[in-house]
Every structure is written in structure tokens, then in C-alpha cells.
Nucleic acid binder design. Structure first.
Lengths: 226, 226
DNA sequence: TAGATTGTTAATCGATTAACAATC
DNA sequence: TAGATTGTTAATCGATTAACAATC
């Protein structure tokens, strides 16, 4: 008894949760085209998976489909959104170096389109709200001289105002100190662009650009030699 | 017979090749500290793997270790580098929008530190060699009016001069056309920052920032509910 | 030689695919 | 009802871990 409930509660296997964002994105696109229902076969074709895998994955969401019909696109979209945590309206801050990577991220639509509230950007050239950022960085130049590193001001902000996610794109040499400061200020996840592996208790998503570039090189090499 | 040779030749499982860049990076660090030899146990500790996995992984490289001693750091480093394709000196070009993501990538050390030759940057604000790029983007502003989109000029360049890797960070709407143009111009791999899935015959490494952000959200949510 | 550590085989674990009864 | 399609169980496949003989 209550077998399906147990099923629903079982922690999602990592392989499944890694696919959720892509399901979510594909379903968004379907919503945009006014398609109301979708079968595991159709979704599998769009995402280049097997129908089996799609159904197996969705079984962890607990009975979100209907036999003979398929899945209601909007229901499925919000069921997946709920598991990801979209309704929690997470907030984010960026710690970056002027004109570098993280700074460009501030303009990326990934935050606004996914319901994550980008609140503030901290860099050695000044601290900015996203709206001020473009002007701030390119025209104002350096806003002020700071005695504290950007990550400390970010941690202070975090303590005062709360923020869930830190996009960490500071210098490698500051990475450990920054992660520690942010963690003790209550940050709940770190998107790590520093290229340094962090040891944290909160979830860390590593974006090691060098590693990624080499991964592509490796594939190219394997392709050549095959 | 020739059993070990067969082993060496067997195509690397994807799980193993995905770890090679991190091995490579860790070994680089060891070289930097003048450590000459390393055991599977030591390496496992640094990389948070099991010694078994390290040895299993390296077995695909074919007898690069020595019983009772471990692995010679430099030998291992170059054996892994060879599989990745470092000695092939791959070259790269960037197709991006002004001041956006790809443009910031041009300044990232991942290319130079990994022996990938970044040759040229194409954007609607002008085409630049990496050395001209910072000045070009921020001070010169728009260099010229172009009648062709950046990806077409990139494809032309690729046909004339050759380039192995395209960092594709153009607008989503141009993603398919750009990939097709670059592929037919002879590009061998695409690092895809457009947020759109490509269908290509060459290896594609997807950097879907929205998906990645949601993956982190998902982990935070799971952590909270556990 | 004795201790250390590899390379490899076997055992386990997890993820994917296939099959099919349940049911809309 | 008949056709479609799910949810779930069983079979397969691949990746990780454990164990140990080979050997430096």
C-alpha cells in the first residue's frame, strides 16, 4: 500500500534530475506553440531519448500522465518546475571581475527567463544593480575605491538581504576565501566559474572552462582517429 | 595474444574521457609543485575518486604506471594530453555578440593555458584578432557596417585559413544557420553557447546557461527538502 | 628481500531499454 | 469498443568498486 507515494518520495536519481532542465525547456517551447498534450514518444523524438526513458523519468514525478492520452504539457511543465524549485523564486548575486566572464553573465537572459531574480553584481570596479550595470561598467568606469574584496561585500549583502545563489567569477586566488565567506553568510548554492574546485557544504555547479574546452578537444581527437 | 594492445586501442568509454581534463589539470598542478611521482591513491584523494577508478581509467592509456612505484607525473601528463589532443595545437575562433558572453570568453585564459590558439573574433561590432579585441570592443565601438552576418565571415575565414573549434555565441535565431555554415566550412567542433540545441555531424559541447542554472536550483531544492 | 603499488578480473551498483499488462 | 499510451517490472548494458595476483 501507498506504493506510488513511496515512489513519489524516493529521491530522484542524479541521472534523472540532470535531465529535468532540458525537459523543462522543451516543454516551454511546446507551450509557446500552443500544443496541449504530448506523448512520451513525441517528447523522446524532440529530445533524442527513448520513449522508455521519458516514461521512466516521469514516473518519479508520480502519475503525471494519463494512459491512452499522454501528458498534459502545462501540468507536466509545472510538475517539473516544482521539482526544480521554480516557484521558490530563488535570488542570485554575481561576484566578478570587471569586463570578465561573470560581468557578461549579468546581461544573460538565463536569470529572468527562468524566474531567478538577479539582485546585485559585485566587482572591483563597483557594486551595481543589474539595471545600472551596463552603464556602470562601461562608462562610469571604476565607481569607488574599496578596501574590502568584492566577495566580502557580497557576503555582507547576503547577510543583510539574503540571496540563494552566488555566481562566483572572481579571481582563482580568491575562490576559496570567497566560497567560505558566502557560505557562512547563508548562500545556498554556488555557480563556480573560477576554475578552482571548491570544498563546500552547499551545492556547487562547476563551470571549468578549461576542462570543458579540453573535453571538446578530446572528442575532436577521438573523432579524427576513429 | 596482443591482448594489452587491444586494450590500448579500445575506444575510451565516455565516462573516462569526461574525466581526462580534470586529471590533466590536477597533474599540471603537481608538475607546478615539482612532485615527480604519484600513486593512484594520492591522485584519488586529490580528485575525490577511488584509487580503483583511477587505475581502471589509466588502464585505457596502456601501461603508463609502474608496479610498486606509481605513475611518473610528467609521463602521465603527456599520455593524457596526447589522448585529449593537446599536441595537435587546435585553433579556435569566436562568433559572438558585442559585449555579451562570447566576447568575454575572448579574454579567458582557457585557450592559452591549454594550448588552443584563439585566432579571431567575429561580431556585429567588427572582426578582431584577440590582441585588438579589448580596445576594439570598448573604445573603437563599431568598426564597420557589415552586410553579412558574423557567422558567414567566420565561415569564410575558416575556409581560407582553417580553424578547428568555433565558439558559437551568436543570437539563438542564427544558431542553426551558423552551425551549418561553419560545418560546411570545415570546422571540427562547436562550443555552443547559444542556448539552442544543434544538429551537427561534428562534436558539439553544449553550454546551455539556463539549463545549468536550473540544475543548480534543482540541487538546492533537493537539499532543502531532504 | 619486503613493501608498495599497479593492472586486471570479478562483483556490485546504477542507468537505460524492452516488454507488456493496466486503463484511459 | 478499439486504439493509444501510460506506469511498472524485468532484462540489458555500462560504470564503479573490490579483490588480488603480478611485479617493480
Amino acid at each position: 500500500m501507498a506504493k506510488d507515494k513511496d515512489m513519489r518520495r524516493r529521491r530522484l536519481p542524479p541521472s534523472v534530475s540532470a535531465r529535468l532542465p532540458k525537459y523543462y525547456r522543451t516543454l516551454r517551447e511546446l507551450i509557446g506553440t500552443d500544443i496541449l498534450r504530448v506523448s512520451s514518444g513525441e517528447l523522446a523524438k524532440r529530445m533524442r531519448l527513448t520513449p522508455s526513458q521519458v516514461r521512466q523519468d516521469f514516473s518519479y514525478l508520480g502519475g503525471v500522465g494519463q494512459q491512452g492520452y499522454g501528458y498534459n504539457v502545462k501540468d507536466l511543465y509545472s510538475a517539473i518546475g516544482a521539482v526544480i524549485g521554480i516557484p521558490r523564486n530563488y535570488s542570485a548575486i554575481i561576484i566578478c571581475r570587471r569586463q570578465q566572464f561573470g560581468s557578461a553573465l549579468a546581461k544573460d537572459p538565463c536569470f529572468s527567463t527562468r524566474g531567478v531574480n538577479l539582485k546585485y553584481i559585485f566587482s572591483e570596479a563597483g557594486d551595481f544593480a543589474p539595471s545600472e550595470h551596463e552603464v556602470g561598467i562601461t562608462e562610469l568606469g571604476t565607481r569607488a575605491k574599496f578596501s574590502s574584496p568584492a566577495y566580502e561585500r557580497a557576503a555582507d549583502y547576503c547577510r543583510r538581504t539574503c540571496a540563494d545563489i552566488a555566481v562566483l567569477a572572481c579571481d582563482r586566488t580568491e575562490a576559496d576565501a570567497a566560497a567560505e565567506a558566502l557560505e557562512s553568510a547563508g548562500i545556498r548554492g554556488i555557480w563556480n566559474f573560477t576554475g578552482k574546485d571548491l570544498s563546500c557544504d552547499v551545492p556547487v555547479l562547476d563551470m571549468n572552462l578549461s576542462d570543458m574546452l579540453l573535453r571538446l578537444c578530446c572528442e575532436i581527437t577521438a573523432e579524427t582517429d576513429e
